[in-house]
Design a binder for these strands. Structure first.
Length: 499
RNA sequence: GGCGCUGUGGCCGAGCGGCUAGGCAGAGGUCUGCAAAACCUUUUACAGCGGUUCGAAUCCGCUCAGCGCCUCCA
């Protein structure tokens, strides 16, 4: 029985508002689309949380043996600042302010985005398409919607006719909105006269004379609407119906709702089987966002260079911190929580190091321990399979860490387990920490020289201790501590760690 | 105004009707020349008020507090 058969996944589907058993459309392969960033400025930590959630999902699906095509787009056409005709898109605005080509802006922040993903040890997606590379396909979808009567053209712009669409299908099923309520409520925006109804949204916008980013189309020079790119690119690379579509919760309405409308309107079928949404990162219980001015850039976090930060924290500490909560809960960001996470992360990594160095030595069997280990391994899978509950999974990993410590100290012997159980335990312990949760050791072990030097000092200190020269031995330890190297004595010898 | 979410011990954070979450911090102990680490033991809970149930942090109602979406936003 394969891992994916043995450990089914249950996930919360925003569309059904229920936890459902995951059954991919094509038996062994999974198509997953995640809405990527608009690259007109630096990604902040809130963005990182969403991509991290889906990074773990991507990793876990592969760990179970699925073949996954993971598509995450780059939005390189700026969405309009507002719905008004004279709006300027964000990338064009940035380009004007910084006197750059729009594509220079796009390239710069795309590079920055990739750097951040690397820092946090994200797996690259299978395909990372960008909106400007798919203008033709977007025009085709607009045309298809026009042909089917779900869109109308006004003065070189094309709008989606939500009211017309709602007669055949139901608009608002993902976000739970009712079209009548949408027609009444909400804020009034300026310059809506082109649209038949306020709920309609743009598929193609006519470019004003000053608008920099523009393409030819059957309706004149213009640029694609806000929601079109995701419909087009997901369909192109994953098919008309695919398994998982993810993104931040703030995209549910209107972005994802409009995606559904566009796909259903043009292709006649629902585009997505499972909609997954990750919740917001908060600061003092408020959503982290650029406009509120409470967002952190990853670099600020690493260096501690921010008024709200006491000091810097490494990317793996942050990753661990985020994994301690469930992706669908808000997570509040604070120095205290990060400091606690840092210690927890270190403890886990110490456990991993112990596991690496453990040798299996035959010994008397302990059935109780054997059962416990089997249960722990099962729980790793069932907890992560339970709507990707990384918090519960980490709890199990800490139980395993305690076991590893006990092996090391000698409270337990490896031989109490069967060889097979011991090997499987170590294999999945490391597998979940590294391959699934995507953690890694913060300090790269490129420390051969340092190892050698500290070894010399450790031996010197041992000599001093043997001669009861504690003044010298303590001086070595204390002085090393001063420069950030902590010595730890144990029965097997002295180890060191770097702060 | 409309729709929706949250409120757990000193802090963070799981939990989806009965069974120890976990991490950090605190206390005591083991080990150590002393430390550190590790190990063992351990204190502090479910916003408030009602209700359903044999049994509720968990379901229902009300109250209070906070948040999100409805405009670009992960």
């Amino acid at each position: 029985m394969s891992l994916k058969e043995k450990y089914p996944i249950y996930l919360y589907n925003t569309l059904s508002k229920k936890k459902e058993k995951f059954e991919p459309i094509h038996e062994d392969s999974v198509g997953m689309y995640v809405c990527g960033p608009t690259v007109y400025s630096d990604v902040h930590l809130g963005n990182v949380r969403t991509f991290m959630s889906f990074d773990v999902i991507y990793r876990y699906l592969q760990y179970l043996g699925y073949k996954v095509r993971y598509v995450r787009n780059i939005t390189d056409v700026g969405h309009l600042e507002n719905d008004a005709d004279e709006g300027e898109d964000k990338i064009a605005q940035k380009a004007r302010l910084e006197k750059l080509e729009p594509m220079e802006v796009v390239q710069r922040y795309t590079n920055g985005f990739h750097d951040v993903l690397n820092d946090f040890n994200f797996l690259p997606p299978s395909i990372e398409p960008c909106a400007t590379g798919h203008i033709m396909e977007q025009i085709e979808m607009v045309q298809a919607l026009l042909d089917k009567g779900f869109a109308y053209e006004v003065n070189g712009s094309v709008y989606f006719d939500v009211v017309r669409y709602d007669k055949d299908f139901s608009y608002g099923k993902l976000s739970g909105r009712k079209i009548e309520e949408l027609m009444e409520g909400g804020r009034d925006l300026d310059n809506q006269d082109e649209k038949r109804n306020k709920v309609d949204f743009a598929l193609w916008k006519k470019a004003s004379p000053t608008h920099i980013m523009r393409w030819n189309s059957p309706w004149g020079e213009g640029f694609p609407g806000w929601h079109l790119e995701c419909s087009v690119m997901s369909t192109k690379y994953l098919g008309e119906t695919f398994d998982i579509h993810g993104g931040g919760m703030d995209l549910v309405f209107p972005h994802h709702e409009c995606e559904i409308a566009q796909s259903v309107g043009s292709k006649g079928k629902d585009p997505v089987k499972y909609w997954l949404h990750s919740n917001m990162l908060t600061v003092n219980d408020q959503k982290m966002s650029k406009s509120l001015g409470n967002s952190f850039l990853p670099q600020q976090l690493f260096s501690g260079d921010h008024p709200l930060l006491d000091r810097g924290y490494g990317p793996m500490v942050v990753r661990f911190f985020m994994l301690q909560s469930h992706y669908s809960s808000t997570l509040d960001f604070s120095n205290e929580a990060l400091t606690a996470a840092e210690k927890g992360y270190k403890r886990l990594m110490d456990g991993i190091k112990i596991a690496k160095g453990l040798e299996y030595i035959e010994g008397p069997a302990d059935n109780e321990l054997e059962d416990k280990v089997k249960t722990l391994i099962d729980q790793l899978f069932t907890h992560l399979g339970d709507d990707f509950n990384t918090a519960k999974t980490l709890a199990v990993l800490f139980e395993i860490t305690t076991l590893m410590n006990n092996f090391k100290v000698g409270n337990l012997t490896t031989g109490a387990l069967s060889k097979a159980s011991f090997d499987t335990l170590v294999q999945h312990y490391q597998g979940f920490v590294f391959d699934v949760l995507g953690l890694k050791e913060e300090e790269e072990s490129d420390h051969e020289l340092l190892d050698g030097i500290i070894d010399v000092l450790i031996k010197l200190r041992l000599d001093a201790k043997a001669g009861k020269n504690y003044r010298l031995s303590d001086k070595i330890r204390d002085d090393l501590k001063q420069v950030g190297v902590t010595l730890k004595d144990s029965k097997e010898g002295t180890e060191y760690s770097i702060d």
